[in-house]
Each structure stands twice: as C-alpha cells, then as structure tokens.
Design a binder for these strands. Structure first.
Lengths: 214, 214
DNA sequence: TCAATATTGTGATAAAAATCACGAATTCCA
DNA sequence: TGGAATTCGTGATTTTTATCACAATATTGA
C-alpha cells in the first residue's frame, strides 16, 4: 500500500508538485464511514472538498424534504458546490453523503484565491471541476426533463454500477424512490419489471445488474 | 447615447481597464434580431460569448427534438456553455436564441487561457460566470424536479417578467409548451386558470402579468 | 429468541399530465 | 381581401405517476 502522499500525487498529477505538497501540508484529511453526511442542506461551507478515496453522492434537497440525486464524486474530483459556497460564504440546498467508506481532504477557503493566482494548475483544476460538474448536471437534467421514470431508474442504477465498478448495488427501494423523487411502490413495480425481463436480479436485498440498456 | 466602449466599460467594470480595451480590440461584435439563433444544438463552438445588450435564452435540447428552458442571459453576463465547449472544442446539446434584439461580443477561444493567467479579473469573471450559471441551473432543476406544471408555468412567466423588466410577455402557448416540455393544450388550460383567478390577463395574444405569487 | 423495525408486494384509486380530435378565432401576407 | 398558416379552446381518453391500504417478509438488536 502506497503512502498518502503517493496517493495524492497519483490522483492530482495535473497539479504542480509544489502545490501537491501544499495540499498535503494545509489540507485537512477527513474520513467518513459508509452513509455518513459530509454536508447537509443549509450548512454553511467554509472549505473546498477534494475526494481522495471512496465515493460521495451529491443530492439536491428542497424545503419540503424532497430530494433528488445529482451525481457522484470520485477520487481526484472536487465538489463544485463546496467551491461556490465557500467562495461566497453561503449555504446551499445540497446534501453530500458517502456512498462507501470515503476519505477527503478539505482546503480552507482562504487559500483558494491565493492558489488560483499563484498556481496555474490550480485554476485549471478549479475550472475543470466546474466544467465537469456542469456537464454532469446537464446529463442529469436531461434525465429528469425528458425521460420517464423507468428510464431514469435504469440510468440511476447505471450510475451506481459505474461509480462502484460493480454489478452489485445494495440500495433499498425506499432509498431509490427518495433519490429519484418518486415513491417506493412505483420503484417496486418498475424493479419487478426489470427483474422479470432479466435485466437485473434481486439477490437478498441487493440488486445485481445483469444487463441494462445504455 | 454612450459609445460602445463606454457601454462595455459600464457592463464589465469588474475587469481591468487594460482587459476592457483588449476585449474591444479583439472581440467580434455580433448583432441579432429578436428570435434568431445564436447557437443551435450540435454546433461546434469556437468562441466565448459576452452579452452586451438584449437577452439570450438558453435551452437544452435532446435528440428527439424535445426542449427545455434553462435560463436567460443579460448584459454583462457570459455563456458558461460556450466557455466550456470552446475550451474543450466540443459541441453541446444547447440552443441559444435572442429573446429580443441582442448584441454580443465573442472572444476567440485562444485568448481565454492566455487572459486567465494574465488578468486576475478575467479569471474571476470566468469563475463567477460558472458559479452563476451553476446556481441558475440548480434553481431550474428545483422547478423541474419538485414542482408541478402549474408552478413551473408561473416560474417561467416570472423569469420572463424579470428578464424583460416588463409585465407584458408576448409568447405563444405553443412556445411556452415547448420550453416547459409540455403540450399546448395543458398550457392553455393552466393559463385559463391563471386568467380566471386574476393573476394574469390575456391582451390580444400577449400575457399581462397582474400578480403572480413568488 | 423474539419483538421492533425496516423492507417489499400488490390491488385499488386518485392525481397530474399527455394525447387525440375537433372547431373556432386570429394573424399574416400574396 | 381572402385563403393559408398559426394560434387557441375544450371535451374525451389514455398514460404515467402518486397515494392509500394492508399484508408478508426480512433484518436487527436487546
């Protein structure tokens, strides 16, 4: 197993070596077990979050407690929302939760601007982060705007398959319903259809993805 | 009436004077009449667009010709999509159309990176653009994810009211239906309800907003 | 182990929205 | 000015999704 500094070097190899060192010096490592909140709706944000290991699920939440899945963040990626909010010193209607055991490194907001002018690779990284999140958000928007729930469910399962790099996804129907802003009964019926047509298998409360269309 | 250079100075006063001058030197002014396409789906993009005057309506489009309104751009604002796409030299499933007579200035993509490292204010401007568009997209996402069509219609009308700074909005029901990804008949019925309850008035094919809830 | 809790299945019904099928009114030009 | 094109109104029907009601498992922790 490689050292943490090696891991960071590998993940953020587009950043200048000096900056990589700085990140390790000033960054605050935080570890989360599966299903812990990293950030909840309304919480003020004072640091930018980089993912070192694991997966972070980012969801939007409204005032009535409704929720909708936006995208997952993976090692080497950063949370655009945390950057925006940190920069503006505001809270956001965003929820971030660890999908599996996860390690992040948080960068104090004060440094963001300083680094941006000092390190070209940092501002490129920040820009790329915004661009990537923007595009993911658009993909997600397509789903919710143009697709029926059956297709959105397949997309949702695929996102997990990709993130987890596994065909086994263990999420309850209740949870799926919550994150698709639907209801459990509806998900139950749609999942039954998928199982009946052989696209998935239910193995003791886990979903095994056999073959889902793209 | 002030000169164009004065207008640009006023709109982009957060940019360094030297940069303002550069924008005028290298930027290519383009004028559009009401309802012209600035950018259509699938078109490759090779410049970033700044709005000088008028309003640009940005919509997402899918492969089946469905469409959904995202947000409007106003003087002093820039199109984040054009920046992303220009930076990556890709096309995007985005449509931009002038809502009224509109003037923009387009910046060749080659300069984006150069300016970002040379002018701190440009880098800040690009970041702010991403942040603002990101937040607008989230607001729009809330609508489509959590609201029923009647509320979305009200939001849509309000967006136009704000952008146009006018209580008179002249858009056909067909167009509203298209941009809300709904159907004309449904919009017709919802608009009738709004008219019946005195929230709007229909004056010869124009919508007059009397009082819409927030 | 056994009750509390969480999870799933399913029929019936309701609500929201889309679609179909018209006809009427309006606007736009040639 | 008169016909084509666009726009609008509205009832009937269908599709999609949500909700209600209730039962059956499965899981967990004291």
């Amino acid at each position: 197993m490689s050292s943490q500094s090696e891991i960071i070097k590998g993940l953020f190899n587009q950043l200048e070596p000096e900056l990589q060192k700085k990140i390790q010096q000033v960054g605050h490592i935080r570890k989360f077990k599966e299903d812990e909140f990293l950030m909840y709706t309304g919480q003020p944000i004072r640091s930018a979050v980089l993912v070192i290991d694991g997966i972070i699920k980012v969801s939007r939440e409204d005032d009535e407690g409704n929720e909708i899945f936006m995208y997952n963040l993976h090692p080497g990626e950063a949370c655009a929302i945390s950057m925006t909010c940190a920069a503006r010193n505001i809270s956001s209607q965003i929820m971030a939760k660890s999908l599996v055991d996860t390690t992040v490194i948080s960068i104090p907001i004060e440094l963001m601007d300083e680094w941006a002018s000092k390190y070209k690779s940092w501002y490129q990284f920040v820009l790329e982060t915004y661009r990537n999140r923007f595009e993911e958000l658009l993909e997600m928007l397509d789903q919710i705007a143009f697709k029926n729930l059956d297709e959105r469910l397949i997309w949702y399962l695929r996102q997990h398959q990709k993130s987890l790099k596994s065909n086994i996804v263990k999420i309850s129907f209740t949870q799926m319903a919550l994150e698709l802003n639907s209801s459990r009964e509806v998900i139950s019926r749609l999942m039954k259809k998928l199982a009946d047509s052989g696209q998935i298998k239910m193995v003791k409360n886990q979903v095994e993805i056999v073959h889902l269309p793209i």
